[in-house]
């Protein structure tokens, strides 16, 4: 037996707080999402991206959601957050973004909300290159209301309103967004957490209309109605059937039932936003008489209370 001193145990600082707790409304947990639903992963990716992007002050982020499972996102994210009506997150965000160009406005909502009832707003917000980030979580179905057909439901997939299989073709979202003028377009699945985080970090630093589609498992409705197993099985499916191709032809990004999912960052370009064009056009004609929109008057509290420990 040697007399050697026992090796020193390196003690890590005890973890008292979840690293994301400043960005989540912990007081609202447990959330409404089902076990193995992909929404928690997407929220986590958004939070992680924000933590990893020091250029963006969390106090200057606003989250706007519509209605549905993904629409509950705004309720769990601890930013200035707005849970609006079905389909109307984008026009609400348009008003917020135009009135407060100092804010980074993130629309966090689902495929039914953004692409079906809110489809008109999507194409116009993209056309105008409104300064906002859209995270469209696509689970292929209306989950909150019990599994009805969405404009993203693959042809032949079953839903509660197409019990014998969906006869409609689904939207190809990256192609739709890009053709309308989105200046950043990406698609990832809930399995591609690091790539999704990287994409979100990129768009947080970018001006203009950014659209990220996230394919996300719905174990309770989409998977069950189509005998696709659990959320974990869907993750395995993404692992085996998704392919990353940043240079893919946008037209080829359709998703067939049980088919390949092509992911990637398809579009990333710089183009003037609505505000840039509005200012430029008016200044061109009015010259010195043009007065650009300025921030409205509001009390500045955070400058005095930066140090204040905000109660969680």
């Amino acid at each position: 037996m040697s007399e050697e001193a026992p090796p020193k145990i390196m003690r890590r600082k005890p973890v008292t707080d979840h690293p994301m707790s400043d960005l989540l409304r912990i007081d609202r947990f447990p959330h409404v999402w089902c076990p193995t639903c992909g929404l928690g992963t997407v929220v986590n990716c958004l939070g992680t991206s924000i933590l990893k992007t020091p250029e963006v002050d969390p106090n200057h982020i606003a989250v706007v959601s519509g209605i549905g499972c993904a629409g509950r996102g705004a309720g769990y994210l601890r930013f200035d957050s707005f849970h609006t009506t079905h389909g109307r997150a984008l026009p609400f965000a348009t008003g917020l973004s135009l009135s407060r160009p100092d804010m980074k406005v993130i629309v966090f909502s689902g495929d039914g909300d953004i692409v079906s009832i809110g489809g008109n707003h999507l194409i116009h917000a993209a056309r105008r290159n409104m300064d906002m980030v859209v995270i469209c979580v696509n689970n292929f179905i209306y989950a909150m209301t019990g599994g009805q057909t969405a404009p993203t439901t693959p042809t032949h997939a079953r839903s509660s309103t197409s019990p014998f299989g969906n006869s409609d073709p689904p939207f190809n979202l990256p192609y739709l967004a890009a053709s309308c003028g989105a200046t950043y377009v990406a698609r990832w699945t809930a399995l591609h957490v690091r790539r999704l985080q990287k994409s979100i970090s990129e768009v947080l630093k970018k001006k203009g209309f950014s659209f990220i589609e996230v394919i996300s498992p719905c174990p309770t409705l989409y998977a069950r109605l189509n005998n696709l197993g659990t959320g974990l099985d869907l993750m395995r499916f993404y692992h085996d059937n998704s392919e990353i191709n940043n240079d893919a032809d946008l037209k080829s990004l359709d998703i067939n039932f049980k088919g390949k999912i092509i992911c990637g960052k398809f579009v990333d370009l710089d183009s003037p936003t609505y505000r840039d064009r509005y200012d430029e056009e008016n200044e061109h004609i009015l010259g010195d008489k043009f007065i650009p929109y300025d921030l409205p008057d509001f009390p500045h509290i955070s400058s005095n209370s930066d140090k204040e420990k905000i109660e969680k």
Partner: peptide, 12 residues
């Protein structure tokens, strides 16, 4: 005020 650290939530 938006953007001043209130991090408030509003919902319909």
């Amino acid at each position: 005020p938006v953007g001043e650290g209130y991090r408030f939530h509003v919902t319909g």
